[in-house]
Design a protein around this nucleic acid. Structure first.
Lengths: 249, 249
DNA sequence: ATAGCCGTTGCATTATACGCAACGTAAGGA
DNA sequence: TCCTTACGTTGCGTATAATGCAACGGCTAT
């Protein structure tokens, strides 16, 4: 809509691939070099680009500033919103967003199932650590001593036949989750429901939240649940990007 | 120089302080809201901003992309150049830039002393690990096991009366450097020269390089050398910012 | 139901971004 | 040393694109 701004932003995008000269940049946006120079000067005054030597321009430090400040401003809930809603409408299953704060796993957002059979849960509610997929995801990358500490402090109340009931079994489960990249709750919390969860990561590759899908066993058997994994991981990835995460080599 | 671009960049800067409404943004750049909207739309098409709800705009994910790609493009040498040259011309002492690669500490840049008495060194040369300030800085934040490994693999050739000659003494020295935030070489390498070095950090707060000043003892006594510390740390900080580092709380 | 608040759209106007051409400067070769 | 070439830079007239205005439309709340 705004020509000069559009051109300038194109320049910035171009510079992301490496330092460029005035002429190279002029060719990209197809304008006279004097026009390019004016744009670059303005960008330079805002520290979006900076000169490198005499013949080259490169991205400036304002980008670092902005990216860092944008990260501070962002909260997972708003950032993950679109990806989670999309997953919810596409699959129709209940989607939860949970985070780990002050030693507790909390549900911070929820997208209800469109199927008639719903499950009970509530935003703000605490999730039991030993029998939910989200808790496994959120805990599995804690530093090892801290993980042991947490595992031993849990009260392993057995809720179903599948509930994990010992620190040792739980720590082994966390190891599995960490290497698999996702977690399941195979009817460990409630007899008739199973869940699958994946991590949402931030700019430092740290786990900032967990997204899960909860499905009544009557709608989908365990293999069916596992088949949701690629879809769930793609969603988690999209949400991660919104949180400042970028793929590592 | 380009009015609309200037306004747009101002908007981006403003959004860094948190999500804003159309009117708030219009007030900042003092234009009609329709003008602001056109700018925002263009910014949005490049993913520099995105809508949050219906009434708010916030910074978009392009910033993360750009910042990450800019970081990959940057190399320490070019990024630190200005800060180091400035330090060199202001103090007149020899300034070195060194990095740790493949188990070796290498001088990657050098700004010669303006004083008549110069020291011998060369870009590309390997710095001995046990008796240089830059090596201490570059090694002091390695993970503990790796640090022990390196310390025990060093050949502690005694070069002066002050040279550190045992792994134990060296590891203790690294601990001191880590907590102090800078390192010295108190004539441990050559009898008549002492150095002080500080870390240059990157976006993940990791040490990407070390900057040092080397001063002949006849020009400055040890207390004089230590008095250069604030100046050196400020320089290292400035160079760090250029490398994508941002102050942590 | 109605009023008030925003965001949005179309249009006329003129400010402004643009291309042009001349100039300046630095590097390279004869 | 001087000339050539290849850049970046500057000033200026013009046409276009950015702007402000005013009317419209979709909310929400009372």
């Amino acid at each position: 809509m705004s020509q000069s701004l559009d051109r300038a932003l194109t320049l910035v995008g171009e510079l992301a691939t490496g330092p460029k000269t005035l002429d190279e940049l002029s060719n990209v946006i197809e304008v006279h070099k004097s026009t390019t120079m004016r744009l670059l000067r303005t960008l330079e005054s805002h520290r979006f680009v900076q000169r490198e030597g005499v013949h080259h321009y490169r991205l400036g430090t304002a980008l670092f500033d902005l990216a860092n400040r944008a990260l501070e401003e962002r909260d997972v809930r708003r950032s993950a919103e679109n990806a989670l809603r999309e997953l919810n409408t596409r699959t129709g299953y209940t989607v939860h967003l949970a985070s780990y704060e002050d030693g507790e796993v909390i549900y911070i957002d929820k997208y209800d199932s469109t199927h008639p059979m719903r499950m009970y849960s509530r935003i703000g509610r605490r999730a039991p650590l030993h029998c939910t997929a989200v808790a496994k995801v959120l805990l599995c990358e804690l530093p090892e001593p801290r993980r042991r500490e947490v595992a031993h402090s849990i009260d392993y109340v057995p809720l179903t036949a599948n509930t994990i009931t010992s620190p040792e079994a739980y720590l082994a489960e966390l190891d599995r989750v960490r290497s698999a990249g996702y977690a399941v709750d195979n009817a460990e919390h409630e007899d008739f429901i199973h869940c699958i969860a994946a991590p949402i990561r931030g700019a430092r590759n740290e786990v900032v939240a967990a997204v899960s899908m909860s499905v009544p066993k009557v709608l989908l058997d365990f293999d069916g649940l596992l088949a949701l994994q690629p879809d769930l991981l793609a969603t988690a990835r999209a949400a991660s990007v919104e949180c400042g995460w970028s793929p590592r080599e």
